[in-house]
Design a protein around this nucleic acid. Structure first.
Lengths: 290, 290
DNA sequence: GGTAATGATAATTTTTTGTTATGGTAAATC
DNA sequence: GATTTACCATAACAAAAAATTATCATTACC
C-alpha cells in the first residue's frame, strides 16, 4: 500500500531534482522530504535514487515508481472531477428490460443519444426474473418489468399498460378451432403472453398451453412474424413491439372481444436514488406507454 | 489525496457489505471501519453509502470510488511485480546512435528480439551532441558516439574503432587533383569524416573543407552512394555502414596509405547503472566492432 | 579556499490513526 | 410481539505516525 503523500513528494522531487525546493513547493520542511523518500525506499525494499554527492539519478525502480505516480495523479484527478458531476446529460444509463421492449426502446434511446452524446446507454434484454436479479446485484440501475415485484429492496413504479395482440395470417378466420389448426408460433415470452390472452378470450375452450400444437420457435424477435406472414401459425406479442416488424401487410392483428393488457413497471433499488441522468430516460419510457 | 488505507477498507466493505466482517478481514476493529468510511466521506464531501437501517447501498459517488479503488489495486500490484523484476530479457532498451550506426544496428536488434520477444528496443538516430543531451535528459539510457565526451554526469566505454573509407566511382584514379575534379558528395556527417581522412592522407594539399567543391548533399543514408556510382563525386563514410548500400559493384573503396579510424564509445549516465536488460545489447554492440 | 547551500539524522512536538467502551437501533428469534 | 442478538455510531483515550526543529557533515559554487 503505497502512501499517496510520500508518492506526491517523490513525484515533485523528481520534477524539481531538489529536496529543498520540493519542500517549499509542498509547504513542508526539507527534513520531511528526506523522510518521505526514505520511507518509500524502505517500504518498497529498493533504492529509488542513486545519490552522488547532493545530486541524484533515478534508479530503474525510481523510474517505475515515477511513472506510476504520474498515472495515479491523473487517475485521481479524473475521479475527483467525475465525483463532482451528477449531471443530467453525462454518464451511462444501465437499463434492463424484456426483449420486445428493448426492440422498441433501443431506437428511442439512440435518438436521445444523438441529442446528448455524453449520455450513453447500456440496454440488456432479459426475462423479468433476471432483470430483478441484475438490479439487485447492481449490474443495472433501472429495469422495466411486467410483473409486480415483491422485494423489500426494490421499488416499483407503474408506467402504463401494453396490450397483447393476437396475430394471425392475413385473411384468416379467428375462432378456437382455426387457431388450433394453425398452431402456435412460439418465442421467448410466447407462452406467457398467449396464456393470458387465450384464457380470457376463450375461457371455455382453453385449458393449458400444451393443448396447442407448437409449429415453431425462434428467439430472433425480428423473425417471429415471418412464419405468420406465410400462413404457418399464430402468435401473441405485445402491441408495442408491432412497430418493429416488416410484415404488417401480410398479417392480421385481431380485434379482441376482451382486450388483455400487461402492466409495465419501472424497477430500481429502493435505497439507491437514480442519478440525475436517468430522469430523461424515465420520462421517455413514461411517454412510450402514455 | 485519497488515503489508500481508507480506500482499502472501503473496497472490502463494499465487497462484504458488512462493517463487522470487514473489520475482521482487515484485522482491525469495527469502530475503525466506521471511521475510515466517515473520513472518506468527509474528505470527498460526498456520501458514499446510502444507509438504511444497518444496511447500505452505494451512492453514485460510492460506485465511482469503488471502481477507482479496484483500478488502483490492480495498478499497484502491477507496480509491485514490475519493481521486483530487473530481468535480462524483459523491458525496453532505449538506445540512441548515429544514423549510419542505426542502419547497421537496427537489423541486429531485431534479430535479438526474435529470440527474446519480451525484450523491446527503441532506437533513435541522432548526431553525437543530441545523443548526449538525450541521455542526460533520461530520454535514452544508452548512447553510441564517436567522440570523447567530457561530462562528469556521463560515463564512456570504448568498444572499438570504425575505419573511415574514401569512396570514389569505379575505375577512378585517386590523387588530390582527381578528387578536386570529382568534387565532394556531402551527407550529415560528411564534413566530419572527410576532414579526418583528408587531413591525414593529404597533409600537404588539404587545408580546409571549403577547398572542396561540394557536388550534392543528401540526408538519406541509403542514397549517399548513388551519385558516386554515377561518377559524380567522392565521399567518406564509416566502413561499418558500407554493408547497407546496394551500389558496391559500381564504386571503389580506396585503400588508404594511412588508415583513419573513428573510435566508438558507449555512453550512459555515470550514476545510473543500466538495468540487466542492457547486458545483451552491450555485448552485441561490442561484438559488432570486435 | 572559503562560503552558502544542501541533504541526512536525532530529538521533540504535533497530528493522525486506531482501540476500548458504550449506547442506540435494526434485525432475527422465539 | 416481546426479547435477544447483531450491528453500527460515537466519544474518550491510547498508540502510532508524521512533521518540525535543531544540528551536523558535505558539497557545490564563487
Amino acid at each position: 500500500m503505497v502512501n499517496q503523500n510520500f508518492l506526491r513528494t517523490f513525484r515533485v522531487l523528481v520534477q524539481t531534482g531538489n529536496f529543498t525546493r520540493t519542500a517549499e513547493q509542498l509547504h513542508m520542511t526539507q527534513s520531511g522530504v528526506s523522510q518521505h523518500i526514505k520511507k518509500l525506499e524502505t517500504q518498497l525494499g529498493q533504492l529509488l535514487l542513486n545519490r552522488y554527492g547532493k545530486r541524484f539519478e533515478l534508479t530503474s525502480a525510481g523510474e517505475l515508481l515515477f511513472d506510476f505516480a504520474i498515472k495515479q495523479l491523473t487517475a485521481e484527478s479524473e475521479l475527483l472531477t467525475s465525483l463532482e458531476m451528477d449531471k443530467p446529460h453525462v454518464g451511462q444509463c444501465k437499463i434492463a428490460c424484456s426483449g420486445p421492449m428493448a426492440m422498441q426502446l433501443y431506437p428511442e434511446l439512440l435518438n436521445l443519444q444523438v441529442c446528448t452524446p455524453t449520455l450513453t446507454f447500456s440496454l440488456e434484454a432479459a426475462p423479468n426474473e433476471t432483470i430483478i436479479e441484475l438490479i439487485k446485484n447492481n449490474q443495472f440501475d433501472l429495469g422495466i418489468v411486467t410483473q409486480q415485484v415483491n422485494d423489500h429492496a426494490l421499488m416499483q413504479q407503474w408506467v402504463g399498460t401494453d396490450d397483447l395482440c393476437l396475430i394471425v395470417p392475413k385473411g384468416e378466420q379467428v375462432n378456437w378451432s382455426s387457431l388450433m389448426n394453425l398452431g402456435f408460433i412460439n418465442h421467448p415470452s410466447g407462452h406467457h403472453y398467449a396464456y393470458q390472452l387465450l384464457e380470457k378470450n376463450y375461457p371455455d375452450e382453453f385449458v393449458a398451453m400444451n393443448q396447442l400444437p407448437e409449429r415453431s420457435y425462434v428467439n430472433q424477435l425480428a423473425q417471429i412474424l415471418l412464419p405468420i406472414s406465410q400462413g404457418l401459425g399464430f402468435t401473441v406479442i405485445p402491441k408495442s413491439t408491432l412497430d418493429v416488424y416488416p410484415y404488417l401487410n401480410k398479417i392480421r392483428v385481431v380485434t379482441l372481444d376482451k382486450p388483455v393488457a400487461e402492466d409495465v413497471y419501472l424497477v430500481s433499488k429502493k435505497h439507491k436514488p437514480l442519478p440525475a441522468r436517468y430522469q430523461l430516460v424515465k420520462t421517455l419510457i413514461e411517454q412510450l406507454w402514455q
